[in-house]
Structures are given as structure tokens and as C-alpha cells.
């Protein structure tokens, strides 16, 4: 029983990280119908910014988190401005290839600056509490609570604020939005900033839980979070959260039941099967074609 609860806790921690990354994919896709394949690498940038802020600048945790999120948001906006905006009216496949290219660029740029894996020092005292046999660490607590706060915050922004309203309007009809006096470029920049900022925050959370980071760490985790977003229903914010936690659960329990080398194999197989039955994801709706 305690063992199962312990695994549930692991699942929550991993799922939270996936969910926060998946939100970045779903934000950009939901607004622009663009799959930002460089998002996993922005997550990696977040982890490296976290490393610099912690190991080199010795900043306190909250400041580290803010620096990583805002720094990654700035890089996300720069990527949009320099790589995606010039292709906004180009065929979708060009934008996807560009996104892949941006990802490879970011990986190798980081590799050039920092060719070896880095160890991120402890940001918070790692305390464990024993709750009736169940061990909860402060890191797990911070990750789960922080991700819930981020998700609730994002849901609020998109549903209740004027900028969220403009994002939803942009997703519906990008050509009409300027006629309302709204700058489309500003709203897209904001969308990328939020999406990348979430990637940066996730990078920090990841570095807390798994402190060895390297320039290629964003590839596999990025793919997984992307799949989480698709399983939940890409474009749907609540779907991304759900997909993240499902993936966290599948991975954790696959590793419990079977040799840990089977983990990714089992996880991806289950997700592929799920997509056969729900091709639009769990909370996704078929996108009606607009002309």
C-alpha cells in the first residue's frame, strides 16, 4: 500500500513536469496551429539558465525560477520573431521544418558553449517528511504545487483576461483580429513568451528532481511532452495537463511492473493505442476546417 502510494507520488512529480511542458506545445498549437518542435530545447535552455543562476550566481530558488522562466520566454519570443514570423504565410510544412531546424540549432549552440553534462546544485534544502510510512520530499512537494499553480494561472489567463480573449480570437480568425484594433504580432509574441516561459519553469523543476543536465536532454522529454499534449488533445489546455499526468502514470507504473528498460516502449505503445481510439486526443475536438 505504502509502495503504491510512493509510486503515485513519483507519478505526480513526473506528470507535473510533463504537463507543464505539454502546455507550451498546446498554447502555440492552439493559437497558431504550429507545432513548435523547438519547445523541448527551450525546456533544456530553462534547465541551463537554472544551472547558471544556481551554480554561478548563487541566487535563491524563487529568483532562479523567475530568471529561468523569463530568460526562456525571451528566447522563445526571439525564435518566433526571427524564425517563425517570416514564414507565417508560408505552407505549414515549411514552418515545421523550421521548428525542427531551430531545435537542432539550439541544441548545438548549447553544446558549443557547454559540451559536458552539468550538475545543478541543490536549490532548496531537501527535507523528507514521513506521513504514515509514506516519504514525501520537499522537492516533490514544490514541483507538484508549483505546476498546479502554473496550470491554474494559465487557465485563468486564457479564459478570463483580455489577452486570453485575444488569443482565443486569434486562434479562430487571424485575419479579422486586427480589425478589432489588436496587434496580431503582439498577441503571438505573448503566446510564445508564455509557452516558452512554461518550458523554462519546467526546466527548473526538472533540474530540481533530476539534477544532471545536458544539451540533448530536451529531445526525448520534449517528444514525450508533445505526445502527452496530443493524447490530451492538442490545443486544449486541460487536455495537456491530463495528458502529462497520464504519461507520468504510465511511465511510473510500467517501470514498477516490468524491467525499467521497457518503460518508454510500454508508454509509447499505450499512447499509440489510445490515439487509435481517440485520434483527436482525450479532450480534443475535431478541428473544423476554416477557409
Amino acid at each position: 500500500m505504502v509502495y503504491i502510494s510512493q509510486q503515485l507520488l513519483n507519478m505526480l512529480q513526473l506528470g507535473s513536469i510533463y504537463a507543464v511542458i505539454a502546455l507550451g506545445y498546446t498554447m502555440v498549437y492552439g493559437v497558431l496551429s504550429l507545432i513548435n518542435f523547438a519547445h523541448g530545447d527551450l525546456f533544456m535552455i530553462g534547465a541551463f539558465l537554472c544551472f547558471i543562476a544556481t551554480a554561478k550566481l548563487h541566487l535563491p530558488f524563487v529568483v532562479v525560477l523567475v530568471v529561468a522562466a523569463i530568460g526562456t520566454a525571451a528566447i522563445g519570443m526571439a525564435v518566433e520573431r526571427l524564425a517563425y514570423r517570416p514564414l507565417r504565410d508560408a505552407p505549414k510544412v515549411s514552418a515545421i521544418i523550421t521548428a525542427l531546424g531551430v531545435g537542432v540549432f539550439i541544441e548545438n549552440f548549447t553544446l558549443a558553449l557547454s559540451p559536458y553534462p552539468r550538475h545543478v546544485p541543490e536549490m532548496l534544502p531537501n527535507v523528507s517528511w514521513n506521513l504514515g510510512g509514506l516519504t514525501v520530499s520537499s522537492i516533490q512537494g514544490v514541483i507538484v504545487v508549483l505546476s498546479v499553480l502554473l496550470m491554474v494561472g494559465l487557465d485563468f489567463i486564457v479564459r478570463k483576461t483580455r489577452y486570453g480573449m485575444a488569443m482565443r480570437a486569434l486562434a479562430w480568425d487571424i485575419k479579422t483580429l486586427p480589425l478589432m484594433g489588436v496587434s496580431v504580432n503582439a498577441i503571438i509574441a505573448l503566446t510564445f513568451a508564455i509557452g516558452a516561459g512554461f518550458g523554462g519553469a519546467a526546466g527548473t523543476m526538472y533540474a530540481m528532481a533530476f539534477p544532471v543536465i545536458d544539451p540533448y536532454m530536451g529531445i526525448m522529454i520534449g517528444w514525450k511532452a508533445f505526445i502527452a499534449a496530443v493524447v490530451g488533445g492538442i490545443g486544449s489546455i486541460r487536455g495537456a495537463m491530463l495528458g502529462g499526468y497520464i504519461l507520468g502514470a504510465v511511465e511510473t507504473f510500467a517501470a514498477v511492473a516490468l524491467p525499467s528498460t521497457y518503460r518508454d516502449f510500454i508508454a509509447f505503445t499505450l499512447l499509440l493505442i489510445l490515439l487509435i481510439f481517440r485520434p483527436n486526443g482525450i479532450l480534443g475536438v475535431p478541428k473544423t476546417l476554416k477557409v
Binding site: M165, R168, A169, A171, W172, D173, K175, T176, L179
Partner: peptide, 11 residues
């Protein structure tokens, strides 16, 4: 008309 269908009338 260019109505934003995913937004409410008020929005």
C-alpha cells in the same frame, strides 16, 4: 461578418 465563434457574444 468575421465573428469569433469561439468567443461569447459578450466577449
Amino acid at each position: 461578418r468575421g465573428i469569433f465563434g469561439s468567443l461569447t457574444v459578450r466577449e
